[in-house]
C-alpha cells in the first residue's frame, strides 16, 4: 500500500491509544475465553456444547430470534413506510418512541412484558381464555426478542426510503406499472439491502439477549431456557469451563453475524452511493 503523505498530527497517539484501549477492554478479555476452553479436549468441548439441554437452548434461542427478527422485518418495514410516506396525528411522537427498546433497560422491558402478557395482564387476560399461553412459554421468548429488536429494521429502512427518488416511481408509473408492481419491482429491491441489514442486526441482538427474556420465559430446562441462561446456570454451579465452552460457541456465531452485517451494510451503502452519482 502506498503511503499517502498526511500532514495532520496525532496519528500515532490516537491509533496507539485506540489499539491499547481496545486490547485491554475487549481483545484480551475475549481471548481469555478462548484460552480457557483449551483446558478441554475437543471431545470434551464437543460433549459440553452438544449436551441435550444445551442443544434445546440453541434451538429456542435461534428459533425465537429468527421469528422475532422476521416479525420485525415485516412490521418494521411497514412502520418505516408509514412514518416516511404518510401524515397522521402524533407521527413525530411515535417516530421518537420507536427507539424505546434501545433506551429502556432490558430488565424493565422484561418485567413489563411479563406483567402485560401474564394470565391476569392487560393482553394476557384476552389471550389465555383462547388457549394462547404467552408468559412462561417459548411464545414469551419470541415476544421479548421481538420487542428488543424492534428499532433495528425501522431505523435501517427509514433513511433509504426517505432518499428514494420519486422520479423512479414516476418512471415506472409512466411505463404502465400499477402501484403494486411499482412496489415489488422497483421500491422493494431498493430497500432489500437495508431490510436485510436490519433483520441481521435484530437477529444478532436477539441471540445474545438475556435481561428481557428471563422474566417472561419461565426458564424451564429443555423448553424455555435460552443459551445465555445456560451460561449463567453453569457459572452459578462453578462450572467455569463448561460456561466458557458454551460462551465460545456464542462468540463464534456473533462474530460470523457481525461479518455478515458488515457485508450487508457495504452492499447497502454501495447501492445508495450510486444514487448520489
Amino acid at each position: 500500500m502506498s503511503k499517502k503523505t498526511n500532514v495532520l498530527p496525532g496519528f500515532s497517539l490516537s491509533l496507539g491509544y485506540t489499539l491499547l484501549y481496545l486490547s485491554l477492554i475487549v481483545l484480551i478479555p475475549l481471548s481469555a475465553a478462548l484460552i480457557k476452553t483449551t483446558e478441554l479436549s475437543f471431545s470434551e468441548f464437543w460433549h459440553v456444547v452438544t449436551a441435550p439441554r444445551v442443544m434445546a437452548s440453541y434451538k429456542l434461542t435461534f428459533g425465537a430470534s429468527f421469528i422475532g427478527a422476521s416479525i420485525n422485518a415485516v412490521f418494521g418495514l411497514l412502520t418505516a413506510w408509514v412514518l416516511v410516506r404518510y401524515d397522521f396525528f402524533g407521527k413525530k411522537f411515535i417516530d421518537a418512541l420507536v427507539d424505546l427498546p434501545f433506551a429502556l433497560p432490558t430488565a424493565v422491558a422484561g418485567i413489563a412484558l411479563t406483567a402485560v402478557y401474564a394470565k391476569n395482564g392487560w393482553i394476557g387476560s384476552f389471550l389465555e381464555p383462547n388457549g394462547i399461553h404467552v408468559a412462561f412459554t417459548p411464545v414469551g421468548v419470541v415476544i421479548a426478542l421481538t420487542f428488543i429488536g424492534l428499532p433495528f429494521v425501522v431505523r435501517t429502512v427509514q433513511p433509504v426510503l426517505e432518499d428514494l427518488e420519486s422520479e423512479t416511481e414516476e418512471a415506472a408509473a409512466s411505463l404502465g406499472a400499477n402501484r403494486w408492481q411499482t412496489f415489488y419491482k422497483i421500491i422493494f429491491p431498493a430497500l432489500l439491502p437495508a431490510l436485510m441489514t436490519g433483520f441481521a442486526l435484530a437477529f444478532a441482538r436477539a441471540i445474545g439477549e438475556y435481561g428481557s427474556v428471563i422474566f417472561i420465559a419461565g426458564n424451564m430446562p429443555m423448553v424455555s431456557e435460552i443459551t445465555p441462561l445456560i451460561i449463567i446456570t453453569k457459572l452459578e454451579q462453578y462450572d467455569y469451563t463448561g460456561a466458557t465452552a458454551v460462551a465460545v460457541v456464542m462468540l463464534l456465531i456473533s462474530f460470523l453475524l457481525l461479518l455478515a452485517i458488515n457485508g450487508l451494510q457495504w452492499w447497502s451503502s454501495r447501492r445508495n452511493a450510486e444514487a448520489i452519482e
Binding site: 475465553a33 460462551a247 456464542m250
Partner: peptide
C-alpha cells in the same frame, strides 16, 4: 479495526460478564 470496535455490540452481555470473571475471578 472498525469491525473489532463493533464487536462488543455483537457479544452477548452474559458472555461479556463471563470474560471478566475468567480474568479477575477467584480461579481467574
Amino acid at each position: 479495526l472498525i469491525t473489532l470496535i463493533d464487536l462488543p455490540f455483537a457479544v452477548s452481555p452474559v458472555v461479556a460478564g463471563l470474560i471478566y470473571v475468567l480474568i479477575f475471578g477467584l480461579q481467574g
